[in-house]
């Protein structure tokens, strides 16, 4: 059971001290590749947050209303993934209609949210930590915002790094991974304040 019952603590813990990217290292692939462009990062952050909240709620409902009563918890991985895939599919159609520019700039990463580890990770945390419905919403919203914050921060840092004299061998992914390491250390600095389990 979660020791944090205060919804505010849970919300801020999931953004800062237990940042899904920088404390749990989930959702790294698109984090590294999209962060080179700030505008796309912003769009992807929004998309991830949105998908997280929707899938968090949907999967909580599926888990507690269908799987647990029927004793089918062992099917959870396959069901969670199917729900995530469907939500992403719907989101893709809506974004294409509402904002074709965002659709274009997200490109292949929009459908790839389906296999973004952060999404499944959050859903599994919700299950393992036995969050209530409201806690699930708070946790997934916080995790999404945390992911969004982290990718925006990284893309801002990368903008500066682009102008810096980086050794040839470290350019691109190399310096980015080192940067992420420093960011992770900074975020872990918060961990004494709040703990989310």
């Amino acid at each position: 059971m979660s020791p944090i019952l205060n919804p505010f603590s849970l919300f801020f813990a999931s953004i800062f001290t237990s940042n899904i990217l920088l404390a749990n290292f989930l959702g790294m692939c698109s984090f590294i590749s999209i962060s080179k462009d700030m505008k796309s990062s912003n769009g992807l952050g929004l998309a991830v947050t949105f998908v997280l909240v929707i899938t968090g709620m949907a999967n909580w409902a599926v888990l507690h209303l269908i799987l647990i009563p029927l004793g089918l918890e062992y099917l959870r991985y396959i069901v969670f993934i199917v729900v995530i895939a469907a939500v992403v599919q719907i989101l893709e159609m809506v974004i294409d209609r509402v904002s074709p520019a965002l659709y274009m700039s997200l490109g292949i990463f929009l459908p790839l949210i389906t296999v973004n580890c952060a999404i499944l990770g959050v859903v599994l945390f919700i299950e393992i930590r036995a969050y209530t419905f409201v806690q699930s919403i708070i946790f997934s919203l916080g995790s999404g915002l945390g992911w969004w914050l982290a990718i925006m921060a990284l893309s801002a840092i990368r903008k500066k790094v682009d102008k810096a004299p980086v050794p040839a061998g470290l350019q691109g992914a190399g310096i980015t991974l080192i940067t992420i390491g420093f960011m992770a250390m900074a975020f872990i600095g918060f961990s004494g304040m709040l703990q989310v389990q």
Binding site: V62, L70, L75, V79, V82, A86, Q89, I90, M93
Partner: peptide
């Protein structure tokens, strides 16, 4: 159960498709 969940999701997708 799997079929039921998939059917609901499929229906949701086609409804969105026809609206969007």
């Amino acid at each position: 159960s799997l079929g039921f969940i998939s059917a609901i999701l499929g229906a949701l997708i086609s409804v969105t498709d026809s609206v969007v």
